[in-house]
Design a protein around this nucleic acid. Structure first.
Lengths: 245, 245
DNA sequence: TCACTTAACTTGTTTGAACAACTTTAAGAT
DNA sequence: ATCTTAAAGTTGTTCAAACAAGTTAAGTGA
């Protein structure tokens, strides 16, 4: 149940592209031919197409049309430019995901934690350490910090299922954006233990550090995700913009 | 010389945010107060703000306003959700970048290369192997494949400066979007040699594989970038969208 | 004082229109 | 036949307007 018209058009076009209804590499029907189909204004249709562009599904060419450049992805992958929980990723890839909570503590941020996470000193936080497994294989070791005032009532039981589901469906919080930084770091003993890694094999892993904001503009989550290197895969679609003069 | 009005407004607001003209964490002036300043329509202003949202600079909150959530980045970083050449990254970070061309060959894609790169079999290609250094330290080992028909006249000399500058300024090609996949891979002997790495230290590196398209919708470049892990840093801003039902 | 309602102000969505810029096709002149 | 020009069709930008939806503050009543 999409709330807006352009969003339902976007989803419909996306589905048709994914299902191969529009030939790959060819031009889509022109705006003027799509407008009567969707019974919308030109602006609304163009808004839907603009999102397909940022998704890397199509390419608009002035004077010519809109080219379908969709390439299906076969491998399991995470986080295609959008925020996705582990549970959502698992179900999207049709795999059996499970989560084990290693630690669940409540504490107050000191200066060291504040500097590292971006929370203010003295903030009441949850710290949660979890391992996400896919088909029984541990893939991700997560260190989550949640702002207690923004995420009240969090429990280890909820953390073992899906925190995002709790945030959105129970607390009715709206997650909006997430600033992420990807790096490669050396394996720690903790990684080695819980991700069942062997230093003689891989001695590093992929680390995604993220600051996440809700619709009130409050940074309520800081997370460090440590990914098994041999299963880590991160997709992206970048748009080239005029260089800064 | 921005060609469009919304783009110049976007750049102006971006500059004001970066320079701290708008207090961090606070709301920006409302649309109705900005419209007379920029002498534009509401749609045009909103379009500029929409880009600031995707950049992760601001956060719009319905009924309240637009919150400045910009956090300055101190460390050198590459490719913030946009396509950027090594030369541009270096100059943005005010560092001295240099490029060494290791190999420059022309060849025809066989079935193996076609499968790996996505080019069609029999396509005439350039293969270029380069090392990018920052302040004399080798950081990136690049394997580039360019479609000869789309990028004619490429030489090793051009490759040692900036290929993108040649594409955009000489060939007047417009680069549009790039599909990227990030993974972590084990170091090869070639990596070890040219990136001056020690297997006993790090034994993996960050790999970015990208398919890049021009404004004609032609995939003209396939590149594998192998990054020194201790200097690799990739930034991103992700937007949460309603989950697929 | 307190709770409720209303009004004002904010961003979000949709429509319609006009013109610009670019590409392709068709028509015309040589 | 060939080149030039014009027209039609495409996406790109900008404007103006109206209403919806959410937040805040002021006002009103008890």
């Amino acid at each position: 149940m999409p709330k807006s018209k352009y969003e339902s058009i976007y989803k419909d076009l996306k589905l048709k592209i994914e299902s191969g209804e529009f030939p790959q590499g060819e031009l889509l029907p022109s705006e003027n031919s799509l407008i009567p189909q969707y019974e919308c204004s030109r602006n609304t249709l163009r808004r839907a197409i603009a999102r397909l562009v940022t998704d890397g599904y199509v390419q608009t060419i002035q004077g010519k049309g809109v080219r379908n450049i969709f390439i299906p992805v076969d491998q399991a992958s995470f986080a295609i430019g959008s925020i996705e929980s582990f549970k959502e990723s698992a179900s999207r890839n049709r795999r059996a995901g499970s989560t084990q909570v290693l630690r669940f503590v409540e504490f107050t941020a000191d200066s060291r934690v504040a500097a590292r996470t971006g929370f203010s000193e003295g903030a009441e936080l949850y710290y949660i350490q979890r391992v996400h497994s896919l088909d029984g294989k541990p893939l991700i070791l997560n260190h989550n910090y949640f702002l207690k005032s923004a995420v009240p009532g969090l429990t280890a039981e909820i953390a073992s299922r899906s925190i995002y589901e709790y945030l959105e469906n129970t607390l009715h919080m709206t997650i909006v954006n997430s600033k992420r930084v990807m790096t490669v770091e050396k394996i720690t003993q903790i990684d080695e233990k819980y991700l069942e890694l062997d230093v003689n094999d891989y001695n590093c892993l992929a680390v995604i550090t993220s600051h996440t904001y809700n619709s009130d503009g409050v940074m309520f989550e800081f997370t460090q995700s440590r990914h098994r290197p041999d299963y880590f895969r991160f997709q992206d679609n970048a748009l080239r913009r005029p260089a800064i003069p």
